[in-house]
């Protein structure tokens, strides 16, 4: 970038030529060229020594420093240290309480989770029990119905059998009387009343035995 650099230099030179008269005038009127002796003509050798030690300045500095430190100690550093400690302890307290709250929350969550898990178990147990109950009830109802049906059936069978027996008995008696009467008429007088009774009884007994087999 040499050409640009040179251009800037030329601009600078031109400007400086333009301002030269002003600068010259400033020098002529003595902008900075004051009488160099007034003010320190009677000075000793230490005047131009940058490490000159002035005891009055040292004592003054010590006094100013100590007073400043005392003032700041009382009105600034003390309250500042107290404030910083207050803030530190408050932050520590906040952190501790936050940790406490977090631990509480965790514990409560664990509790609720356990409770929730317990509730599911309970529900399952209840359902199981209900199912068992229902099953049992069903079996019971079926068994009761069965036994009731059986009883009814038995009772009907008994009645039926009784009725049949009665009917057969009546029928056989009727048959026997008819047969005896018929046979009596046939054989007439050949049978006494005593023989007649014996014959009827035998016939009835034989008749009464045979239907009970079926």
């Amino acid at each position: 970038m040499a050409p640009k650099w040179i251009k800037w230099l030329l601009v600078l030179l031109t400007l400086s030529c333009a301002t030269a008269p002003a600068a010259g005038m400033a020098a002529a009127t003595g902008g900075h060229g004051h009488d160099e002796h007034i003010g320190h003509a009677n000075a000793d050798a230490k005047l131009e020594d940058p490490s000159e030690f002035k005891s009055s300045l040292a004592i003054w500095s010590l006094v100013v420093f100590l007073i400043l430190m005392a003032i700041l100690w009382k009105f600034a550093w003390g309250p500042i240290v107290a404030g910083l400690e207050k803030r530190e302890s408050r932050i520590a307290e906040n952190i501790a309480s936050a940790e406490r709250v977090a631990a509480d929350a965790q514990r409560m969550m664990a509790e609720y989770e356990a409770k929730l898990a317990g509730a599911a178990d309970q529900v399952r147990a209840m359902l199981d029990e209900a199912r068992r109950d229902a099953e049992h009830t069903k079996d019971q109802i079926v068994a009761e119905a069965k036994s009731a049906a059986q009883l009814e059936h038995d009772r009907q069978m008994r009645e039926l059998r009784t009725a049949t027996d009665q009917a057969l008995k009546a029928l056989s008696e009727t048959f026997a009387d008819q047969a005896v009467a018929l046979a009596g008429r046939i054989i007439n007088e050949k049978l006494s009343a005593k023989d007649h009774d014996r014959l009827v009884k035998d016939a009835v007994a034989r008749f009464a035995q045979s239907p009970s087999v079926n």
């Binding site: 300045l57 007073i67 009105f75 600034a76 309250p79 500042i80």
Partner: peptide
């Protein structure tokens, strides 16, 4: 001397700044 005056100026500035700061920090905020 000039430096004595300037030390007082420095001390005054410091007192002003830090007493003001102390008023803020002492709240513990």
């Amino acid at each position: 001397s000039k430096f004595m005056v300037l030390e007082l100026v420095a001390a005054a500035i410091l007192a002003f700044v830090f007493i003001r700061l102390a008023g803020m920090i002492r709240t513990g905020e």
